[in-house]
Design a protein around this nucleic acid. Structure first.
Lengths: 249, 249
DNA sequence: TATTATTGTAACATTATGTTACAATAATAA
DNA sequence: TTATTATTGTAACATAATGTTACAATAATA
């Protein structure tokens, strides 16, 4: 995503971008049996927030969301889903952008386009934690994984956005089988179950879970895995794409 | 929603509105055992489309959607749900707005804000057909109910928007019990079942459906109804609000 | 008063899910 | 080398949910 001669967000007029529309991305990863979320830290401000961005005038909205998620993770093939548009007037708070800019020696003009009101399209992304290469978006920030239950206070309504993203993810787990996007190609049934348990926030019964997952017919058993644990080695499974599930509820 | 001294959408600059953001409302009704959708006809153009609108700079996005739906139906208490944001660049087609304006003796300037690209937030609304009073939005259009399987070709991607709204409605039927918003206060089990069958697009088994609905504990049996049919009279039911369903999937 | 069409629901069949139990086995330790 | 340990895979049963058949109840009509 090199945009050498293309417009920058930081230009005052916002030339080249759709006005009033922002994208916020809740990028989920799964590591050490914990759900992680990718957060931005704005340097010299102590402010944290979700990675976000704007839509170029010649760019699809979904493409813009993919670009935002790609820029931070280094991945190109990302499972992305719109989950809500945050458009309350009360979200409007120009002071935050001013703070970030001034903390870095810049002073935006009063009519800077980023000081106007934005409606934000929320996307959640599911990525394979092991494949991600974190990269800051601008010189003003850095980005890192945070455990979902150790998320600091974020700017604006970003804590609420994460909450809503998690709710949407929970619903899509059963309907769309999205969970696999959070795992590496090969995984054990135990991996899968703890992933489900973490997202759903409750324990599941092992035999029932295994029976159900296998009955879906979307898992291919690939090989044994010798973990090094003093116990029977689990099988490795792989998600078999191309099979759609009819979730006739 | 009287906005006497407030800005109008038709002004060239779009002063007072958020730029680049539109709202499209798929307003569903249910009548004669048929799902209906409310469509706008733009006069002297032969063009049909969904009711839509824009967001005022001091207005919540959801409030704007409610305003759009209210203006057409005359209702104030409307079940509304965001279901998708349509943001592909390929949607961009300024000619449509030109056609509608010129058909009515107006000629928008080349830099009219409505000739720019918009991203559209899709909402679906569920209304009690019997309570609706249709009202056109502007002097350029009229609005009417259309049977869902007799929808004409619509402007832009509006046919696709309806399709996606229906898919979202189908999912919410079981999870959120939204169906009742389409029925009058009192209804028979038969009414409810045909509503479900119409939305889901398939037949349901009567005993199982009745058993399930009653088991939900959200229906109050109010009285007998004497329809005039040569058969046993059905009970009337009423939706008992306040009871939330835990759709632990 | 018999007929008709539809309603309400019981009763059973089937499927899905919850739960208990136990054999299989990779690593560790005796 | 062999017993121990912790975990895995799954059978087997229990319970709940859903699918299906059947039939009595009854409001209007003939």
């Amino acid at each position: 995503m090199t945009n050498i001669q293309r417009a920058k967000e930081t230009e005052a007029t916002g030339e080249g971008f759709l006005k009033s529309i922002a994208i916020d991305a809740v990028i989920f990863g799964f590591h050490d049996n914990q759900l992680k979320v990718l957060l931005i830290e704005y340097k010299r401000t102590g402010l944290f927030g979700l990675p976000g961005g704007f839509v170029r005038v010649d760019e699809d909205l979904n493409t813009a969301a993919l670009r935002v998620a790609s820029e931070r993770t280094g991945l190109t093939d990302i499972y992305l889903e719109q989950f809500y548009v945050f458009g309350d007037y009360s979200r409007y708070d120009p002071s935050r952008f001013k703070t970030i800019m001034t903390a870095n020696g810049q002073s935006p003009t009063e009519d800077h386009w980023l000081l106007k009101r934005f409606v934000s399209v929320g996307y959640y992304a599911l990525v394979d934690f092991t494949k991600v290469n974190l990269a800051p978006a601008a010189i003003f920030d850095s980005c890192n994984w945070y455990d979902l239950n150790e998320v600091p206070t974020l700017i604006q309504d970003h804590n609420g956005i994460i909450k809503k993203a998690l709710e949407a993810l929970r619903l899509s787990l059963d309907n769309k089988l999205t969970g696999f996007n959070l795992l590496p190609r090969d995984f054990t049934m135990g991996n899968l179950q703890t992933l489900y348990e973490t997202i759903l926030g409750r324990k599941l019964l092992r035999p029932a879970f295994q029976r159900k997952m296998l009955a879906l017919g979307i898992l291919e058993r690939v090989a044994k895995k010798w973990t090094g644990g003093a116990h029977k080695a689990p099988y490795l499974y792989r998600f078999v794409a191309g099979k759609t599930i009819n979730s006739e509820i």
